[in-house]
Design a protein around this nucleic acid. Sequence first.
DNA 1: TAATATGATTGAAT
DNA 2: ATTCAATCATATTA
Length: 242
Amino acid sequence: MRLDNMLLAEGVSGPEKGGGSAAAAAAAAASGGVGADNSAEHSDYRAKLSQIRQIYHTELEKYEQACNEFTTHVMNLLREQSRTRPISPKEIERMVGIIHRKFSSIQMQLKQSTCEAVMILRSRFLDARRKRRNFNKQATEILNEYFYSHLSNPYPSEEAKEELAKKCSITVSQVSNWFGNKRIRYKKNIGKFQEEANMYAARTAVNAASVSAHGSQANSPSTPNSAGGYPSPCYQPDRRIQ
DNA sequence: TAATATGATTGAAT
DNA sequence: ATTCAATCATATTA
C-alpha cells in the first residue's frame, strides 16, 4: 500500500503523460536547490523516469492478462470436471481467490522493484552532491571569521547559525555542514590551517584595535578569548576541539 | 590530468 | 537532535 502511494507520487502509476510534470515539480521542490536549474539533466531524469513507468505499465498489463487467462483456464477446467463430479460455486470462488492472491503478490514484487528503480534514479540525479557549488568569497570570509574568532568553542548556537546563514545567504543546514566540515578538517591537521588562522586572528585584532581607537575605552566585546597581541604569533598550542 | 579543496550525505555515537 | 568520521561527487588548482 505504501508502494502504491509512492509510485503514485512519483507519477509512475498515475495518468499517462500529465503525471510527469507533477512528479517533476515535486522532484524540483524536493531538491530544494537553486532557482537556475537543469533543463538538460532534468529532462534526462524525466526520460528515465518515463522509461521506468513504461516498463511498469507493460509488465502490469502482462500480469493482468496472464491472471485473466489463467482464471478462465481454471474455470474451464472446473466446468469440465463438474460433469463428472459436483462442484460447488463456493469452491470455484475459492480457487479464483487463490489465483488472484498469487498474482497480486507478484504484482507487489513488480511494484517493489519499480520503487527501487525510482529511488536509485532519484539518488542518482537529485543528489545534492552532484550540484555542489562553492560558496562565494565573502560567505566563506564570514564563516571563517566566526570560526577563528571562536576557535576554542566553534559551535555556533542555533541563533548564531541563523544569523550566519542570513549574512552568507545560505541555509542554516549549509552553515551546519560548513562548521562540521571545518571542525573536523581543522582538527585533522592544524598545521595546514595555521596560516589561515593567523590571518583571521590578525584581522579581528585589527578590527578590535580600530574599534577601540575610534571609541573611547579599550574593549573587546565580540572576542571572548584567543586573539593574542596585535603583531604576530597567535600560535594556539591551546586545546581546540574537545 | 593528477592532486587537492570543498560542500553534501551517510551511519554511528552521544 | 547534534556532532564526528568517513566517504562521495564535484570544483579548483598545480
